[in-house]
Design a protein around this nucleic acid. Structure first.
Length: 318
DNA sequence: AGTTGTGTTGAAGA
DNA sequence: ATCTTCAACACAAC
């Protein structure tokens, strides 16, 4: 699941590997992944395959000949700045990730040639989009569930899309001070976990880092955000910043499908304390980690460290 | 072997 | 308005 650290890892890789390259070709077996910047959420029905193919032809026409200037992250979106004032937006959604390497199309299917991790890891085999550069290197989108989307338009048009324009402050932005964090969290409900997952409030946090941050801050995910104490908000703010920064440093988390542009797994996976660890013992108190539902989302927590109720004895919290 | 769970996001429904 | 549910999709696990 590409969240802030995973998308940042991809963007950093792109800035190292594809800047300065010129696009010569674009291939897909799933034209539906291409979206219209005016209606970025509109999906095209299978029955309208002709329309999707036309969109893809325009997408390809817009990209071929363009030079890559730089890449940038906005929330969980990858933005690739191109010559001619154009911008390529890619959202990897749940199972998408970008890979840098070489492929050949055999009987209409892409076959990974290099590097090794792309050839050998099944999670890198769901390639549905390939951008070819003039030096014959390629950038591919592997996406098992085909939720990812891409669009190209002018810089202004992409920034005006709802995808970008409606994003709240970035979770790692220096502008997200404790004061700002408190203000934002106070406005939102119904639970603190759901508030953390709202991109229009704070962008970049997904299921993994929401659970990890709440555990570090010792806050129950179903707490009413309006009722959090000043100290709890301070702990949560600090936990989010420090966990996200560490995850960026370690190139993200790969509990399932996420891979970097070399096809390799992220290093934060082994530092997780709760996400995907249901049934294991909490490292602080040995209580069994539980998995519950919060707002329809799988949520991992330690019921002892993250007590839902305030119990006071002689004025002190137990 | 059919059913369920997975998690991003927005649209639809309540 | 605010909240919940569902849909897009493919695959693993039960």
């Amino acid at each position: 699941m590409p969240e802030l650290p995973e998308v940042q890892t991809v963007v950093n890789d792109l800035n190292k590997k594809v800047v300065g390259k010129r696009i010569t070709d674009v291939w897909t077996d799933n034209p539906k992944l291409v979206r219209d910047h005016l209606h970025p959420s509109r999906r095209i029905a299978d029955a309208d395959i002709k329309e999707a193919q036309k969109n893809f032809r325009h997408f390809k026409r817009d990209l071929v000949g363009e030079k890559i200037l730089r890449a940038e992250r906005k929330g969980k979106n990858v933005l690739v700045y191109l010559s001619s004032n154009k911008l390529l937006l890619i959202h990897q959604k749940m199972t998408g990730h970008l890979l840098f390497g070489k492929w050949e199309i055999k009987r209409g299917r892409p076959k990974g040639l290099e590097p090794e991790a792309i050839k050998n890891d099944p999670f890198n085999g769901f390639v549905h989009l390939i951008i070819t550069f003039s030096d014959k290197t390629q950038l591919a989108l592997s996406d098992m569930r085909k939720f990812a989307k891409a669009m190209v338009a002018s810089v202004e048009q992409i920034h005006a899309t709802k995808d970008i324009a409606s994003l709240g402050i970035d979770a790692l932005s220096p502008g997200l001070t404790l004061k700002k964090f408190e203000e934002l969290i106070k406005t939102s409900g119904p639970t603190i976990k759901q508030a953390l997952l709202k991109p229009e409030l704070i962008s970049g946090i997904g299921n993994i880092y929401a659970d990890e941050s709440l555990h570090r801050a010792k806050i129950h995910p179903q707490q009413n955000p309006k009722k959090l104490t000043k100290d709890e908000l301070k702990r949560l703010h600090a936990a989010i910043k420090s966990i996200l920064r560490k995850a960026v440093r370690l190139r993200g988390t790969s509990t399932s499908d996420f891979r970097d542009t070399e096809g390799k797994e992220g290093g934060y996976t082994k530092w997780r304390l709760v996400y995907g660890r249901q049934g294991e013992s909490c490292q602080s108190c040995q209580t069994t980690i539980k998995r519950i539902k919060v707002g329809g989302r799988g949520t991992h927590l330690c019921l002892y460290c993250q007590k839902p109720l305030r119990l006071y004895t002689r004025g002190k919290r137990q």
